[in-house]
Nucleic acid binder design. Structure first.
Lengths: 147, 147
DNA sequence: CTTTTAAGTCTACAAGTGTAGACTATAACT
DNA sequence: AGTTATAGTCTACACTTGTAGACTTAAAAG
């Protein structure tokens, strides 16, 4: 069995908040994390420390080993984490309705001109070879689409 | 305090699998669920029963109260569940990179001609008013974008 | 060098999740 | 009516997650 379907440990919601600070600062200390997160969450310093600890254990953060005031940095880029999260979500939902969800997101999310242009390009390139219908994959086996 | 930010209980991963069958069949029994899920998961019948029980408790499923062979049905549509899941994911990630993730999904996911056309329409309508840049909202407070 | 502060580590604990066995009561069969 | 199969309910247990207090030790201050 190859390693292809190896499932990395998830970044939990709270952990995600920590990662975003690290990704933004590039490199950070526990204190800085506590300071920033204090503006967004109501966490005690201990909570942040626990989260950092877990993220290191899961392999998403490392530190420089200095005994006081360690510098942490991410072992995964924000972009790949985001892509993975996106893939993950969509791969577990009904394929037939993915388009609808995407369209909704395109409508609701703030997007830059450039993003929009890129996406139009992507879609236009895709259009010619697109199928009439995407099959529903909700029911294991062959039978019926979801409503 | 209004109810606006009331947080519904999450549908967990395993529960999601159950819901997909219910959504597809419109109405179903425990046995049918066990039968279908048996093709996708390696769950024991008990596992399915637990999942169904939890989904009823969380308010996502109801049954017709018949003592044997109850019929279950969903209390939430698959579409709204999916939309919610999508919103949820994207609202917790970096706004600046949302476009990139969406583009990746547009590239990778199977989409129907019609979906694509709709989305191109959405994007074209959006383009004129789109900003040059979407600000990064990773750091609480004002300072700096994430990389 | 002693004291203090706080960074880092351990422990904790409730709720949620994945997974499933054990038990109970009811419908169906003889 | 008595027996049986099994749908439905309870209980269980390990692991993850959210959240945080307690303890230890090294660095900073006096």
């Amino acid at each position: 069995m190859t390693n292809v379907d190896y499932k990395k440990e998830q970044i939990s919601n709270s952990e995600w908040q920590v990662m975003r600070i690290v990704w933004s600062l590039g490199q950070t200390t526990t204190n800085e994390l506590i300071k920033y997160l204090n503006r967004k969450e109501t966490w005690q310093p201990s909570t942040v420390k626990t989260l950092v600890f877990r993220l290191e254990k899961k392999g998403y953060l490392t530190d420089d080993g200095v005994s006081r005031g360690r510098k942490f940095s991410a072992l995964i880029s924000e972009s790949s984490a985001m892509l993975e999260a996106g893939d993950n979500l969509f791969s577990s939902m009904c394929a037939m309705k993915n388009g609808m969800v995407l369209n909704h997101l395109l409508e609701e999310l703030e997007l830059s001109k450039k993003d929009i242009e890129i996406m139009i390009g992507t879609l236009e390139k895709k259009l010619p070879n697109a199928a009439k219908e995407v099959a529903c994959n909700c029911l294991p086996g062959e039978e019926g689409d979801c409503k």
